[in-house]
Amino acid sequence: MAFLQVNHIEKHFGSTKVLENISFSMEKGQVLAIIGSSGSGKTTLLRCLNFLETPGSGQIVLNDEVLFDGETYHAISDEEQRKKRLHFGMVFQSFNLFPQYTALQNVTLAPSLQKKQSAEEIDALGKSLLKKVGLENKMDFYPCQLSGGQQQRVAIARALALHPDILCFDEPTSALDPELTGEVLKVIKGLKGGDSTMIIVTHEMEFAKNVADRIIFMADGVIEEEGTPDEIFGNPKSEKIKAFLAKSLETI
């Protein structure tokens, strides 16, 4: 059984089908990139994994634990849902840092609310994570004093602080100026190799090619093609992905 197993996920907004029969799996330590044009359902899929959206049907199984089952979903309490959600971390396109807290407080807030560790341990954890993302000099800065790239790195540290099994990135560099994307992608790349398992929705094709172990190409709510970067970029099969890649690699 794979580490993460997603089976037949469906999601409709009213009569619009956003996700149709989505199934895929991934192993621990892998990096999965999801690419595709806007409106293809990439972000919705990621939001379903984080329980920010509720799929209409299907199953999400992580490490042999059923996190979501369309059949029994209604019986789950808020408390249980919060526990299940913690298996996934999320880094948003628009960072969503808490503006009234410093970089360090943003990272330590959630662990300190969980009260599983002492304040000193949490503080040390926060500092080491900010160091990991290269912000040891900005710990006491407020988000408004940081650049977009720095804010996103704080957001990555914040997500890591809860030790999620799988860290999800929703177009982490789309809101950034081109000169700031590099520093964020470098941090994400740096996380690879440890035991971090990551799912990255991205428009950065070069990045997906270099960092991902597997790539999913989505179009119109379905997985159109899945494979290794070499297969997807080197030898794409479907017409849709050929058209998409031609567009995204087009030089103007």
């Binding site: 971390g89 969503n96 808490f98 959630a110």
Partner: peptide, 23 residues
């Protein structure tokens, strides 16, 4: 308050009460 603030709290496992008071 931008919706993203609530979502950020949610994915960090906070309760509704914690999101209201802390965020």
């Amino acid at each position: 308050i931008p919706h993203g603030q609530y979502e950020a709290g949610q994915v960090l496992g906070m309760t509704k009460r914690q999101i209201f008071f802390k965020v």
